[in-house]
Design a protein around this nucleic acid. Sequence first.
DNA 1: TTGCAAGCTCAAGTCAGGTTTAGATCAAGC
DNA 2: GCTTGATCTAAACCTGACTTGAGCTTGCAA
Lengths: 160, 160
Amino acid sequence: MHRTDLIAIGELAARTGVAVSAIRFYEAKGLIEALRSGGGQRRFLRADIRRVSFILIAQQLGLSLEEIAAELARLPAQRTPNAADWTRISTDLRARIDARIFALERTRELLDQCIGCGCLSLKKCGLYNRGDKAAQRGAGPRYLLGDRAGEIAEVAGSGG
Amino acid sequence: MHRTDLIAIGELAARTGVAVSAIRFYEAKGLIEALRSGGGQRRFLRADIRRVSFILIAQQLGLSLEEIAAELARLPAQRTPNAADWTRISTDLRARIDARIFALERTRELLDQCIGCGCLSLKKCGLYNRGDKAAQRGAGPRYLLGDRAGEIAEVAGSGG
DNA sequence: TTGCAAGCTCAAGTCAGGTTTAGATCAAGC
DNA sequence: GCTTGATCTAAACCTGACTTGAGCTTGCAA
């Protein structure tokens, strides 16, 4: 542990490619924690570079910040995720990807049937009927309920 | 053409499973058009049931309302999309699905490599380096730039 | 004719994931 | 000691896709 083990927010930003404002935002959301200098400036551990990079990866895989926070909360605070942690987490993530691929393949099948018939029929079209189910889930913006990525998986999974 | 060829907003909502407020919203955005009754209430053509169902399907495939509006604008106004229209459009959509599946498969490959090594390394990790690129795209919420669904396709497509 | 569900408009609110701005303070080099 | 650049906080703003609410009108059936 050298004295340079603590880094400023600007360096963390530079190292991860994330904007300074985003890092503050992540801290506010509880995804990362910061120590403070005498003058009140944030000081991060080098380990936080990995934490932030994990956030970026998980985001790419479609997790919301809330879900990411939940994953990170399972790690010992302020510790770099080690190989075992990462294996567990990334195995979970892989299952998500598998589900999304499966759902898209199912969507493609349905679409192929649609291309064939050209009907866009409310009664018969598998694609439409999935949308219909989604719409009947109740109030609230469907977008926010996860219909962008998650919905397709769920509906296809439940046998449309 | 019976006299019941025109339907009220409530019926359109019921037939499509979309909230009345959402239909008004779509009209405001120019995705659909409404005639008006003597008293000023909206009256839709039955064909609009198909238009709305198309909106739902396209949304499931990740198109924004703006993109959907663009697709719909290419159709003759107030006409039911016919088989030829639908074939063209759905073939386009199929290409999108293919791209997304491909991108996810690539992501899965990278993740599998990661599971093996457990490094989460900034230098070596394919997943992380993609995130890094995304972060460097400039200002604005990455989420809104299409990184939720589109980004993965683009980055993987451009040869990672 | 009355009663009430369904419809109308317009403005404002919501949610995620941040960015931007303003005005003040800190840290470091010369 | 001074200047300059980095950082601080708090609040406002942004996009997309809607919903909610207030206050008022239509339309249809009994």
